[in-house]
């Protein structure tokens, strides 16, 4: 039903980019067409962002971000850099109130670590649409990145 509605609306709407399908298994014909047509646009904007961010040192070097108290505990994030790239992100120190520790340790932290590695130095200080658990991690990571970039 929703897919049909988009086919109709798609004809009326000009200027929206269909960037990609987040769940490849569910890729619809409509999305495949718009990804092909508009891929160039999204590529150029991401290249611009990469050029704008400051380079990381050649390393190898390890820097620990500030121990951040975020209301429900403390967290400090360690970043390892080699050859201008982040090679690892780990938790240097972590203490949380018991009620929150399971959620943070088992869900948010390992995956945020993977995401930060994927983003490679594009410092993401904050996440929209997410709950608070990411904030302490992001704040400490940002502090470590700032140190690495000599800010």
């Amino acid at each position: 039903m929703i897919r049909r509605a988009f086919t109709v609306l798609g004809a009326m709407v000009v200027g929206l980019l269909g960037i990609l399908t987040l769940y490849p298994r569910a890729k619809s014909q409509l999305s495949a067409a718009s990804v092909n047509k508009n891929h160039g646009g999204s590529k150029s904007s991401s290249q611009k962002a990469a050029a704008a961010s400051a380079p990381l040192p050649v390393g190898p070097v390890s820097v620990t971000g500030p121990l951040t108290n975020y209301g429900f505990g403390d967290i400090a994030v360690k970043v390892d850099v080699a050859n201008h790239k982040i090679v690892d992100i780990s938790i240097a120190k972590f203490q949380a109130l018991e009620a929150y520790s399971i959620e943070i340790e088992q869900a948010a932290v390992p995956s945020l670590r993977a995401e930060a590695l994927k983003a490679q130095g594009l410092p993401i200080g904050i996440v929209t649409g997410a709950t608070y658990t990411s904030q302490g991690f992001a704040y400490s990571l940002q502090g470590a990145l700032n140190k690495l970039k000599g800010k």
């Binding site: 980019l17 987040l22 569910a26 409509l30 999305s31 594009l122």
Partner: peptide, 30 residues
């Protein structure tokens, strides 16, 4: 998109991400 003040994106129930040009600096692919 007609208002200069705002940019935005949506994700459909099928997982298609659609954005007003200029909204995103990067897309994270799986």
């Amino acid at each position: 998109a007609q208002q200069r003040q705002f940019r935005g994106l949506l994700v459909t129930v099928d997982g298609v991400l659609r954005a007003i040009p200029g909204t995103m600096v990067t897309v994270i692919q799986t």
